[in-house]
């Protein structure tokens, strides 16, 4: 298929940036979206132009690096996928596709479609961990029985890959789904209880400090999340914060 791409080009963090039109021809419907961008970039390099900078790594939906806001949606029109898992069969011959970087004040553009998502790392460092003694006397994992239900819910929350689609898609640029998932994965397990109070309070404080917006429960994040992280994790985060406030 032949396509017109409208892509956000921005030379660096301080450049104003603008949408630029490109044509790509003979795109196979079996290609992934990133492979299609590869074709475009080869074309650009061959003609001596600067290729489009974009984030990617695993190309199999597990690292969360590939971002891109495609036709007005994070990771494009399909559901439960990352951009690297988006197939060109979702589009038609002759389509015009807009491709923009993930937008949020807390995710500044570095170049073209690459944005700085290290704010998520700083939130994780504020409390998204458990302190385990690794000196050699670690407890046997089976010594702590955990109900199947809790284990499943914790595992579901732990599948968050930190891609930032929830922030990109939120009309408020809120990071609540991400933080909700990161708090929930420990809140449901006994290992997470010891630091539970500090975890919720510190991660939320860091989230606010980074300049993410306030959640108004539109639910857009849950629809666009490639890993199906649900709003119940945000409800749990709210409860965890209330608990933390009561305890402190």
């Amino acid at each position: 298929m032949n396509l017109t791409l409208q892509i956000w080009r921005q030379k660096g963090p301080n450049d104003k940036g603008q949408m630029v039109d490109y044509k790509v021809n003979d795109i196979s419907e079996h290609m992934s979206f990133l492979e299609m961008i590869d074709v475009l970039n080869e074309q650009l390099v061959a003609s001596g132009d600067e290729p489009v900078a974009f984030d990617h790594d695993c190309r199999e939906g597990i690292c969360g690096m590939c971002s891109m806001y495609i036709n007005g949606e994070a990771h494009g029109p399909d559901r439960g996928i990352t951009t690297c898992q988006l197939h060109m069969r979702m589009f038609n011959d002759g389509d015009t596709i807009t491709i923009e970087p993930f937008r949020a004040a807390a995710f500044p553009v570095i170049k073209d479609l690459v944005v700085d998502r290290t704010a998520f790392e700083r939130i994780q460092q504020a409390g998204g961990f458990i302190s385990v003694n690794t000196s050699g006397n670690t407890q046997d994992a089976n010594a702590l029985p955990i109900s199947k239900h809790d284990a499943d819910e914790a595992m579901d929350a732990a599948t968050c890959i930190g891609c930032g689609a929830c922030v990109a898609t939120c009309k408020n640029s809120s990071a609540m789904l991400f933080v909700g998932a990161k708090v929930s994965q420990y809140a449901l397990l006994p290992q997470g209880q010891i630091e539970a109070t500090d975890r919720a309070a510190n991660m939320v404080a860091q989230m606010d400090l980074e300049g993410f917006g306030n959640c108004t429960n539109t639910g857009a994040c849950e629809v666009e999340c490639p890993k199906g992280i649900s709003l119940t994790n945000i409800a749990r985060l709210n409860r965890e914060l209330m608990k933390a406030a009561c305890k402190s």
Partner: peptide
């Protein structure tokens, strides 16, 4: 506050797709 957090708007945004 939310307007500040979303300083740069998308050129194309399909808000109806998910909320």
């Amino acid at each position: 506050k939310n307007r500040k957090a979303t300083a740069v708007k998308y050129v194309k945004n399909n808000g109806a797709a998910n909320a």
